[in-house]
Structures are given as structure tokens and as C-alpha cells.
Amino acid sequence: MLVENLNNINQKIQLACQKAQRSVDDVTMIAVTKSVESGTAKELAELGIENMAENRVDKLLEKKMALKNFSSIKWHLIGNLQRRKVKLVINEIDYFHALDSLKLAEEIQKRAEKEISCFIEVNITGEETKHGFKPEEVIEFIHELAPLDKIKIVGLMTMAPFDASEHDLHEVFSKLKKLQLAINDLNLLHAPCTELSMGMSNDFPIAIEEGATFVRIGTAIFRGA
């Protein structure tokens, strides 16, 4: 079942890339393993999946330990991170997708032993239930990060409303793309901002059409689409 689901996802990624005249090599699928046990995550690793994500610190550490023999896996923390837990996880991950405050950035700076690739979380739609900066706040925040040499802003992340129409999805994702390009044009060493983490199981083809470079897929892998 995993093989069939992964094949279906890869076909959808290829089709979306063709539609947008993009290379499939520009899109990385991250397997979000929060709903499965370590044994299933191991099956994915054996199938060649090399990017895995969790939204909770304890679960990420648990799975990383269980899959320690798969040294090529890149680990992504995609959930909101409490400052008191930064020291537990920040040196165990390759990417952090939910940087949403200066205080959190300062705690990461304090605890990190290496440069951390971070995505700034952007709340494009202004939903009260979602974390993240308003789009108009992001560039000022990036300038505030300049003294923090352990933080590298590789891109932006957002989540579209789950029940959004196709038209609204295109709008949300295209707005994040425009913001990413504006930041990239600033040519800041600490914020190259070349990446876009957007799109999940229900909307990743549209996210790819609008420029996603990382898509976060869970349900479609484990339950099918």
C-alpha cells in the first residue's frame, strides 16, 4: 500500500510540475510521520524516503532514534516549538519550518551548535487559529534576525485553510511566492529565502503549481488520496 500511495503522489508531483513547466528535481516531498509508529517510518526509509517530519519534539526524537541506521534521512520539525523545548531538539534537526517569533529565534541562537535552516511561518489568510507572521511583518522580522548567526532563513512556510476552494488555494500560495521573491531580491546573506514550504495531502499539486519547493505529505502516504 505504501508503494502504491507513493507512486500516486509522485505521479501527481510530476503532473503539477509539467503544468507549471518546472523540474521535478525542484520539489522535495517530506513524509509527515506524526500519525504512524516508528516501524512504518522505517518502512518508508527502506523505500528510499529521505525527508521525514514530525510536529512534536518527543515524537521526532523517538523516530530519529529508531531510524538511526538511516543516516541519509533529513529531519524536519514542522510544528510550533515551545522555547523550553528548543534545547532538546534544535541540534537534532535539519530544517525547522515554524519560526514565528523573535524570542524563539533568540532561544535557537542560544542553544544551536550549528547553523539551523529555518522557514518563517506566515499566516497569509489571517486565521486566528494559525500561528505565524502577517505578510507585511515578515521583512522587518528578517532584518531583526541579522545578528543571529545560527539562524539561516532558507524560505517561508504557510498552511492554507483546509476547506479553501481551488481559486483561494492558488491565491494563498501565490501570495507566499511573491513574498519569497521579494525577500530573495534583498540579497541578504542570512536570509537567501529560496524555498517555499507549502502544500499538504489535500492541496500539494496546487502548491507546486504556485512554486512550492517542499511539500508536507502525511495522509496521502498512509491512507491514500
Rank of each mutant, 00 (worst) to 15 (best):
K42S: 06
T129S: 15
Y95T: 06
V27E: 08
I217W: 02
N55W: 04
I90L: 14
K63A: 01
A98L: 08
C193V: 04
E127Y: 00
A112I: 01
V36K: 00
N123C: 01
A164M: 04
R111S: 12
E195R: 15
E43L: 08
A41P: 04
L60H: 04
I183E: 03
N7F: 09
S35A: 14
K134S: 12
E54F: 04
L196Q: 00
Q82S: 13
P135R: 12
V3R: 13
A98I: 08
K12A: 02
L77E: 05
I217T: 02
L60M: 03
E54V: 02
L188Q: 10
N8Q: 04
L104Y: 01
V86R: 08
V215Q: 10
F204N: 06
I206T: 13
A45I: 08
A66W: 00
E121V: 00
R111E: 03
E106A: 13
N69Q: 15
L77M: 13
A31G: 03
P161Y: 00
H167S: 15
H190D: 02
A31L: 14
Q18D: 05
I124S: 05
S101D: 06
K85R: 14
K64Y: 03
Q109P: 08
E37H: 01
F141R: 04
W75S: 07
L179D: 07
L6G: 10
T194V: 05
V172Y: 04
A207R: 11
L6E: 01
E140A: 15
S23L: 09
E4S: 14
A53T: 07
P192K: 07
A212Y: 12
D58N: 15
Q109R: 09
E195Q: 13
L2C: 10
V154P: 11
T129C: 05
C17K: 11
F204R: 11
H143E: 15
T125N: 06
A160I: 12
G218Y: 04
H97Y: 10
L77H: 13
Q18T: 13
E137I: 13
I153K: 14
F222Q: 00
H131L: 09
R83C: 13
L88D: 15
A182I: 05
F70T: 03
T33S: 06
I108S: 03
I124E: 00
L148V: 00
V32G: 02
W75M: 08
L2F: 04
F141E: 09
A45G: 14
V154W: 01
A220V: 06
N10I: 14
K64D: 03
D185I: 02
K85Y: 06
E37R: 00
I183D: 06
G199F: 03
E209R: 09
Q180L: 10
L148Q: 07
I30Q: 01
L189G: 08
P205T: 04
M157N: 07
K177G: 04
K177T: 03
V32W: 01
N91S: 11
A66D: 00
S71C: 02
F222I: 12
I13A: 08
L104I: 11
V27I: 15
M200A: 09
T158R: 07
N123Y: 00
K175D: 11
D100P: 14
V24Q: 09
E4D: 11
K134P: 09
D203V: 00
A191E: 01
I13L: 05
S174W: 01
A20H: 12
K19E: 01
A45V: 15
M157S: 10
E115K: 07
E128Y: 02
N55D: 15
N7Q: 09
K34V: 03
H190R: 15
K152M: 08
I30L: 08
I9P: 07
K152D: 00
